[in-house]
Design a protein around this nucleic acid. Structure first.
Length: 280
DNA sequence: AAGAACCCCAACCGCTGAGAG
DNA sequence: CCTCTCAGCGGTTGGGGTTCT
C-alpha cells in the first residue's frame, strides 16, 4: 500500500497539496472522525464534511469509505448462494449496473458486487476462453451455474426465507416474507427446478422446454411484486430465471459445460460440490 | 521452507449527469 | 444557454494474504 501514500511523500506536486490531502488506507483515527461526524450531521456534502471533520481527504474518498466500509448496515463476509444467484440474475438483466444491482442486495455494496463479478465470474469466462459479455457465457451461467446455485439454496433449505428477504430495502421484510409463496409450495417448485437442472445437465443438448419454462416462472418469483418491495422487478417476463429456461442453450459442445466449466466453477468455491444428480 | 502465482478487495481515477448560479 | 461544482457510477490498480510448486 506504500504507493498509496505517494501524496504525502512526493515532492513533485505542490507542497501544499501533499500537505493537505491524504491517500491510501484509512487509519482508525480517520475512520473514527468520519463515523462521528456522520453520526452527528448525517451523510452528504462530502467535500464540506471532509473539511469540517478535519479529514485531510477528498470528499470522494470520504464518501467511498463511508458507503463501502463504515456504514453500519454494510454486510461483511462471503456472498450467500442466494445473493450470488441474484447477482447473476440481475446482471443478465441489467449488465454492469453495479449500483442498481447492489440496491437489490441489502447490505452489499456496488464495489463488492463488482469485485465478485470480476474475480469470480469473469475468471470462469477467461478459463473457458469466451467473452464474459457474450451470449454464450450468459447461457453457461443460466444453464449451468444458476441451477447449481438453486440446488445449493435448496440443500440449505433457506430459499423461501432468504429469497423473500433478498431485495428488501426497508423494514417491511416480515410482511414481504409472509406474502411470498408458502414454504411448501416453494419447495415443490424448487423440486421442479431441480428436475430441470437434472434434465438440462443430463441431456446431450439443451433445448427450449415450455414445461420447464413454466415451472421456472412459477418457481422463484411467485408474487414477486410483493417480494421485491419498492422497486419491483418484472421478473416473470424479463428475468434471467425465465430466460435461462427459455434461452437457446444449445452449446457447440455441451460437454464442455459439464466438464471443463464445471471444474472451473467448482475450483472457485464450494458451489459445485453439490452433486448435480440425486440429493434432490 | 521459499519463491512464484494467484486471489481478494480497498481505494483510486476518470467520466457523466444533475443542479445551482 | 453556459459554466461550474458536486455526487455518484463503473473501470482499474496494486498491496497483502493465501495457495501452489
Amino acid at each position: 500500500m506504500s504507493s498509496f501514500t505517494k501524496a504525502s511523500s512526493s515532492t513533485s506536486c505542490s507542497e501544499e497539496d501533499t500537505e493537505q490531502l491524504r491517500k491510501g488506507p484509512w487509519t482508525l483515527e480517520e475512520d473514527s472522525l468520519l463515523t462521528r461526524y456522520v453520526a452527528r450531521h448525517g451523510e452528504g456534502h462530502w467535500n464540506l464534511l471532509a473539511k469540517h471533520a478535519g479529514l485531510r481527504r477528498t470528499g470522494k474518498s470520504c464518501r467511498l469509505r463511508w458507503l463501502n466500509y463504515l456504514k453500519p448496515d454494510v454486510k461483511r463476509g462471503n456472498l450467500t448462494p442466494e445473493e450470488q444467484f441474484l447477482i447473476l440474475e440481475l446482471h443478465c438483466k441489467w449488465g454492469n449496473r453495479w449500483s442498481k444491482i447492489a440496491q437489490e442486495l441489502p447490505g452489499r455494496t456496488d464495489n463488492e458486487i463488482k469485485n465478485y463479478w470480476r474475480t469470480r465470474v469473469q475468471k470462469q469466462a477467461r478459463h473457458l476462453k469466451i467473452d464474459a459479455n457474450s451470449a454464450a457465457f450468459r447461457n453457461v451461467i443460466r444453464c449451468s451455474w444458476m441451477p447449481r446455485l438453486l440446488q445449493m439454496m435448496k440443500a440449505s433449505s433457506t430459499l423461501p426465507q432468504q429469497v423473500a428477504g433478498l431485495g428488501q430495502q426497508n423494514s417491511d421484510s416480515e410482511q414481504c416474507a409472509s406474502s411470498c409463496v408458502s414454504s411448501s409450495e416453494s419447495m415443490n417448485n424448487m423440486s421442479k427446478i431441480s428436475e430441470f437442472a437434472e434434465y438440462q445437465t443430463s441431456s446431450s443438448g439443451i433445448t427450449d422446454n415450455n414445461e420447464y419454462n413454466t415451472v421456472a416462472k412459477d418457481c422463484y418469483y411467485v408474487d414477486n411484486s410483493s417480494c421485491y418491495g419498492m422497486e419491483t422487478i418484472n421478473l416473470p417476463s424479463t428475468s434471467a430465471v425465465g430466460d435461462f429456461m427459455t434461452a437457446d442453450c444449445h452449446m457447440a459442445d455441451n460437454n464442455w459445460v459439464n466438464d471443463g466449466f464445471a471444474d472451473g466453477i467448482w475450483s472457485m468455491g464450494e458451489l459445485w460440490e453439490l452433486p448435480l444428480k440425486g440429493n434432490l
